[in-house]
Design a protein around this nucleic acid. Structure first.
Length: 964
RNA sequence: GCUCGAGUGGUGGAAUUGGUAGACACGUUGGACUUAAAAUCCAAUGGCCAUUAUGGCCGUGCGGGUUCAAGUCCCGCCUCGAGUACCA
C-alpha cells in the first residue's frame, strides 16, 4: 500500500512539472485545430489577383470501418505541399469531400433496412472527426458529397449534355445533336464522319425526312455520347448489377470477388471510344507516373492495321454471298492466309454453316457458351474449334479459304473474325497444327517447321505476288493500296477500349433524369433538376427483376406539371415511367475537382470566372488503383466539358502522384496440427502448424504476445496450452494489406492520442518514399516523437524548462545549419522527397541543440520550415515567439548561399582508393584557384591519356567533377 | 507471354544523379541516473582481420564492360513486386 502511495505522489509531481516544460501535444493540437476552424485559416477565396495553386486529394468513399493509418498517407503529403505553397505566397485551393454513393452502404441497407443516407452520414462524420485530428489544412467550406442532391444535380446535368451531343470527327470534338439532325435533313449520314454504333445503317436526306419520330430517335441514339443500347454486359448475379470492365478483375467482381457472366441487356452507355485517340494523345501532355500512363495506354489499346473483307462462296442454303470483315495488324501477310476463324458467337456462323458440319458446329458453340469467362481465361492452352464447311474467297488469289470457328477469337475485339496466317502468328500456327491445316510460308529465308515467325522488323515477304521482296512496312503500305483499289479493305486503327456501361441496377446512386415515352428515353429538362432519389421500402430488386427503384411508389414523371408523381398515375399520355437504373460510382467523381472551384453555385455547375481562375489541378495525389477507372473517365468528361467550352483546359490534372500503400504487419500464433497447443515461433522447428492471425494490438515491440488478452479475445483458445520460449510467446510476422479481417489495422486516432498528430504526420512521411509501398510499424514512431520533444526543448532551454528564445546575433555555425536546412527542405518538398526532409530536421535540431542556439533569428525561420510537416507545434512555437495569427501565411525563409561558402576550403582530391592520382591543395584556396589547379593536374594526366578536359566544376562542400 | 518497377546492414531507408556507400531512424549491446521500472542522456553497431593507438582487406542480387572514379552508366543473367493478357 505504501508503495502505491509513493507512486501516486511521484507521478503527480511529474505532471505538475510537465505543465511547465513538457511538450503537451494533446493540448497544443486541440487548441490549434480549434483556432484554424474558428478563424477559417485555410479558406481559399476566388481572388483573381493572387497567383493560385490547386492541390487535390482523391476524395474517399466513407466506409464503415473508418480510416486506418494507411489512408492519410497521401492526404498528409498533399497537405505538406499545400502548406508549403501558402508559405510561398500562393492562394491555395485544397478541398476535400466524399464520394458518398456506393455499394457498401446499400448492402448494409439491404441487411438492416437502414436508409443508406443515414449510414453514409454517420460514416462521413466519423471520417471528418478522424481527419480533423490529423490537422489537415482543407477549406471545408468547399466540401462536396456526391450523394447530396445539390451536387448530383450537376452530375445529372452533365449526363443531359452528353445525351444532347455527338462526336464530330471532322472537327474532332463533341457538338450538339441538333446540328447533326440539321445535317441529316440536308445530306443524310453517308458522308458524316461521326462516332456511332457499328450497325448504323446508311440513309439519305429523303430517307431521314420520311422516318417516323420514333425511328429518328432510334437512329440518333446511335450517335449520342450517352446512349441506350442492347449490349453484352458483365452481369454479377451476386451483386444483382452490371459492372464496368474495370470493375471486373479475372472474371470476378472487383468488390467481393463474385462470379461475373456475360449477358445481353439494354443499358445506358458512354461513348468514351469517341475520345480514344484524344485520351491517348493527352497523356503526352501531362506529368503523370509512367506506370499509370502505361496502364491507360494498354487499356485504350490502339493498334494500327487494316480492315479486310473476305467474301464467302455462295452459301449452300440459299446461294447468298456474305462479306466477312476482319481486322489485322499484319495485312502484309495476306498471302499466307490458309483459313479464317470466327468467334463462336459471330452472327454469320449460323448462316454459313453447311448441313454436314451443322451438328459439330452447334455443339461447339453450345460448349463454349457453357464455359464461363473464367474458364476460358484460365484455360488458354487447349486448342478447340470446329469447321463450318463454308469457304471464303481470297481477295487476290481467289483461292478457297476454309472458315473455322474457335474460341481463341474473341467476339468483343475487332470484328470477331480473323484471317489466320499460321506462318506468322503463333495462335494460328497452333490451331493449324492441331487441325491439320496447311501452313504456307511467305517469309524469305525463315524456317517455320517448329514455330511461327512473328518478327516484323526483319521480314522479307515471299510467295506473295506483288509483295515479294518487300519489308513489313513496304508490304503493308502496298497491300492496303491494292485492297482499296479492289474495294476489299482499307487501313484502319482499332482500339481495345469499349464504351463504358453506365447503368447500375442499384438504389444508392444518381437517378437518371430520364423518362420513357413509347419505350424511348426522354430528358426531363434541366430546369427540373435535381431529380432526387425516391424512398423505397426494400433495397432489393423487385419480384419482376427490376432494379430497386422499381419498388418506389412515387416514381413517374408528369410532363404537364413537370413533377414526380405516383406510379399509379402512369397513363403514357402525360405521365410516364421514370428510368429505374441509377448511375455508376464513377459518375459523381468525374467532375468533382471542378465543382470545388465554385461549390455553392446553384445556377451553373461552376462559374466561368471560377474555372478560368483555378483552371486546373496543379497537383493531384491518389492511388494507382484508379488507373483505368476514375482517372480515365474523368479525363473523358473533362474533354467533353472542354468541347462544350465550359472548361479552359482539356486535361484537368497537370501533375499526378500515386502514393504507395501502407501495409500492415500481421502477427501470427501457430497451432500445432491435431492438438490444442499454440507454439511460440522459435519452437516450431519441423512441426506441422497452422498460422492464426493475432490482433496486432496484443503484441508488444519485441513481438511478444499478451497471452491473457489473446485468450479473452478468442474464447476457443481459452483452454489452449501456450508453449513459451524463455517465458514468452513470440509471434510470427508477415507483411500484408491492412485489413480488418487480418487484425493488423492500426488506427490513426490511437497514434494521435499516444504520440500526437504531428508525430503521426512526420512518421508517415518518414516511413519511406511517398510512391513506394511500405509496411507500418508503430514501434518506430518513437524516433520522430523524440525529435519533436527535442525540438520543443530547443525553444524551452530555460533552467526550469521555460520558453527561452532571445534576440541576438546568431553565430556562423547556427547560420550554416539553418541555411543548409532551408536549402535541403525546399529541394525535398519540390521533389516530393518528404521522407528525407524529416531526417534533415532531425540533423538540424541536433546540431542547434549541441550549439546551444536559442537565437530568434534562427529559431523563427526553423518553425516556418517545420510548419508544413508538423503544423501544430510550429503554430505553438510561432505564437510563443511573439507572432500574432497563424504561421500558415508566414513567408518561407530565403536561402542564402553565403553561409555555406566556407565549405570551399579543404580540397584533398583522391581519384581512387589506391591514391594513384592525388592532388593536395592548400586549405585556403578559393574556388577559382582550385579550378585552375585541378585543371593543371588534369592536363598533366590527360597527356598520358591523350585527351583534354573541357571544364572543371567545383561543388561547394564536395570535391570536383571533371567534364572531359 | 508482354509492359513497367525494384534488388544497398538485423529492419525502414539515405547517397547532392558518376565523386568519402550505409545519412537519419528503428532494433540490438554496453553505460549513466533510479530502491526499481518508465522516461531521459551518453557510447558502440556492414563483414572479416589486426591493434596500445594508428590500421588493413572485403563489401550495394550475379557475371562482364566503360571510367582516374560505378550503388549510380553499358551488355548479359538471376530474383522479387505491380499491371496486363488468346487483342489478330
Amino acid at each position: 500500500m505504501r508503495l502505491t502511495e509513493i507512486r501516486v505522489f511521484t507521478r503527480k509531481q511529474d505532471s505538475t512539472k510537465a505543465h511547465v516544460m513538457k511538450y503537451n501535444f494533446r493540448e497544443i493540437e486541440a487548441r490549434w485545430q480549434k483556432y484554424w476552424a474558428e478563424n477559417k485559416t485555410f479558406r481559399a477565396t476566388n481572388d483573381q489577383e493572387q497567383k493560385k495553386y490547386y492541390v487535390l486529394d482523391m476524395f474517399p468513399y466513407p466506409s464503415g470501418a473508418g480510416l486506418h493509418v494507411g489512408h492519410p498517407l497521401g492526404y498528409i503529403a498533399s497537405d505538406i505541399y499545400a502548406r508549403y505553397k501558402r508559405h510561398k505566397g500562393y492562394n491555395v485551393l485544397h478541398p476535400m469531400g466524399y464520394d458518398s454513393f456506393g455499394l457498401p452502404a446499400e448492402q448494409y441497407a439491404i441487411q438492416t433496412g437502414q436508409h443508406p443516407a443515414i449510414t453514409t452520414e454517420n460514416n462521413i462524420n466519423r471520417y471528418r472527426e478522424q481527419m480533423d485530428k490529423i490537422g489537415f489544412s482543407y477549406d471545408w467550406e468547399r466540401e462536396v458529397r456526391t450523394s447530396d442532391p445539390k451536387y448530383y444535380k450537376w452530375t445529372q446535368w452533365i449526363f443531359m449534355q452528353l445525351f444532347r451531343s455527338y462526336y464530330n470527327y471532322d472537327t474532332d470534338k463533341a457538338e450538339p445533336v441538333d446540328q447533326l439532325i440539321a445535317r441529316f435533313e440536308k445530306e443524310g449520314n453517308e458522308n458524316i464522319k461521326a462516332a456511332c454504333d457499328e450497325d448504323t445503317p446508311v440513309f439519305s436526306a429523303e430517307d431521314w425526312l420520311s422516318y417516323s419520330e420514333e425511328k429518328k430517335e432510334q437512329l440518333l441514339l446511335k450517335y449520342r455520347l450517352t446512349y441506350l443500347a442492347d449490349a453484352e454486359v458483365n452481369w454479377c448475379p451476386a451483386l444483382g448489377t452490371v459492372l464496368a470492365n474495370d470493375e471486373v478483375v479475372n472474371g470476378v467482381s472487383e468488390r467481393g470477388g463474385h462470379p461475373v457472366i456475360r449477358k445481353k441487356m439494354t443499358q445506358w452507355s458512354m461513348r468514351i471510344t469517341a475520345y480514344a485517340q484524344r485520351l491517348l494523345d493527352g497523356l503526352a501532355t501531362i506529368d503523370w507516373p509512367q506506370p499509370l500512363k502505361d496502364a491507360q495506354t494498354n487499356w485504350i489499346g490502339r493498334s494500327e492495321g487494316a480492315s479486310v473483307t473476305f467474301e464467302t462462296f455462295p452459301s449452300e442454303k440459299d446461294n447468298s454471298i456474305y462479306p466477312i470483315e476482319v481486322f489485322t495488324t499484319r495485312p502484309d501477310t495476306i498471302f499466307g492466309v490458309s483459313f479464317m476463324t470466327l468467334a463462336p458467337e459471330h452472327e454469320l456462323v449460323q448462316k454459313i454453316t453447311t448441313k454436314a458440319q451443322k451438328e459439330e458446329v452447334e455443339s461447339y458453340v453450345e460448349a463454349t457458351a457453357m464455359r464461363s469467362e473464367r474458364d476460358r481465361l484460365s484455360d488458354v492452352k487447349t486448342i478447340t474449334g470446329a469447321f463450318t464447311g463454308a469457304y471464303a474467297k481470297h481477295p487476290f488469289t481467289g483461292a478457297e479459304i476454309p472458315i473455322w470457328i474457335g474460341d481463341y477469337v474473341l467476339a468483343g475485339y475487332g470484328t470477331g473474325a480473323v484471317m489466320s496466317v499460321p506462318c506468322g502468328d503463333q495462335r494460328d500456327y497452333d490451331f493449324a497444327r492441331h487441325f491439320d491445316i496447311p501452313i504456307p510460308n511467305i517469309f524469305a529465308g525463315v524456317d517455320i517447321s517448329e514455330t511461327a515467325y512473328a518478327d516484323k522488323a526483319n521480314t522479307t515477304i515471299a510467295n506473295s505476288q506483288f509483295l515479294d521482296g518487300l519489308s513489313y512496312k513496304e508490304a503493308t503500305r502496298k497491300v492496303i493500296e491494292e485492297l482499296e483499289k479492289l474495294g476489299m479493305g482499307k487501313g484502319k486503327v482499332n482500339y481495345r477500349l469499349r464504351d463504358a456501361v453506365f447503368s447500375r441496377q442499384r438504389y444508392w446512386g444518381e437517378p437518371f433524369p430520364v423518362y420513357y415515352k413509347g419505350g424511348l428515353p426522354q430528358l426531363i429538362g434541366e430546369e427540373h433538376l435535381p431529380l432526387t432519389l425516391p424512398e423505397v421500402e426494400k433495397y432489393l430488386p423487385t419480384e419482376t427483376g427490376d432494379p430497386p427503384l422499381g419498388n418506389a411508389q412515387v416514381w413517374a414523371w408528369d410532363v404537364a406539371n413537370a413533377a414526380v408523381v405516383s406510379n399509379t398515375l402512369i397513363d403514357h399520355e402525360t405521365v410516364f415511367p421514370l428510368e429505374l437504373n441509377t448511375m455508376p460510382g464513377w459518375a459523381g467523381s468525374s467532375q468533382y475537382f471542378n465543382r470545388y472551384m465554385d461549390p455553392w453555385n446553384e445556377e451553373e455547375i461552376y462559374s466561368q470566372d471560377a474555372i478560368n481562375y483555378w483552371s486546373e489541378v496543379d497537383l493531384y495525389i491518389g492511388g494507382i488503383e484508379h488507373a483505368t477507372g476514375h482517372l480515365l473517365y474523368s479525363r473523358f468528361w473533362q474533354k467533353f466539358m472542354f468541347d462544350l467550352g465550359l472548361a479552359p483546359v482539356d486535361e484537368y490534372a497537370r501533375k499526378l502522384i500515386n502514393q504507395g500503400m501502407i501495409l500492415g504487419t500481421s502477427a501470427f500464433v501457430y497451432r500445432e496440427e491435431g492438438s490444442n497447443r499454440l507454439i511460440s515461433k522459435g519452437l516450431i522447428e519441423d512441426k506441422k502448424v497452422t498460422p492464426i492471425h493475432a490482433d496486432v494490438s496484443m503484441i508488444n515491440a519485441s513481438d511478444e504476445l499478451d497471452v491473457e488478452a489473446f485468450r479473452q479475445w478468442r474464447p476457443e483458445f481459452k483452454e489452449s496450452e501456450f508453449v513459451m520460449e524463455g517465458g514468452k510467446y513470440i509471434v510470427g510476422r508477415e507483411v500484408e494489406k491492412m485489413s480488418k479481417s487480418k487484425y493488423n489495422v492500426v488506427n490513426p486516432d490511437e497514434i494521435c492520442t499516444d504520440y500526437g498528430a504531428d508525430a503521426l504526420r512526420l512518421y508517415e512521411m518518414f516511413l519511406g518514399p511517398l510512391e513506394q509501398a511500405k509496411p507500418w510499424n508503430t514501434a518506430g514512431i518513437t524516433g520522430v516523437y523524440g525529435f519533436l520533444k527535442k525540438l520543443w526543448k530547443l525553444y524551452h532551454s530555460g533552467t526550469d524548462g521555460s520558453f527561452n528564445v532571445q534576440e541576438g546575433t546568431p553565430d556562423k555555425a547556427a547560420l550554416k545549419t539553418l541555411h543548409k536546412t532551408i536549402k535541403k527542405v525546399e529541394e525535398d518538398i519540390e521533389n516530393f522527397s518528404f521522407n528525407t526532409s524529416v531526417s534533415t530536421f532531425m540533423i538540424c535540431v541536433n546540431e542547434l541543440s549541441s550549439q546551444k542556439c536559442n537565437i530568434k533569428e534562427i529559431l523563427a525561420p526553423l518553425a516556418v520550415l517545420i510548419s508544413p510537416y508538423a503544423p501544430h507545434i510550429a503554430e505553438e512555437l510561432w505564437s510563443k515567439l511573439g507572432n500574432a495569427g497563424s504561421i500558415a501565411t508566414a513567408p518561407f525563409p530565403d536561402f542564402d548561399p553565403q553561409y555555406l561558402v566556407e565549405d570551399n576550403k579543404a580540397y584533398p582530391i583522391s581519384f581512387n582508393g589506391k591514391m594513384r592520382f592525388t592532388l593536395e591543395l592548400p586549405l585556403d584556396m578559393d574556388k577559382e584557384e582550385i579550378e585552375k589547379a585541378v585543371l593543371e593536374h588534369e592536363k598533366t594526366k590527360a597527356q598520358l591519356n591523350g585527351r583534354t578536359p573541357k571544364r572543371v566544376i567545383v561543388v561547394p562542400g564536395k570535391i570536383v567533377n571533371i567534364v572531359g
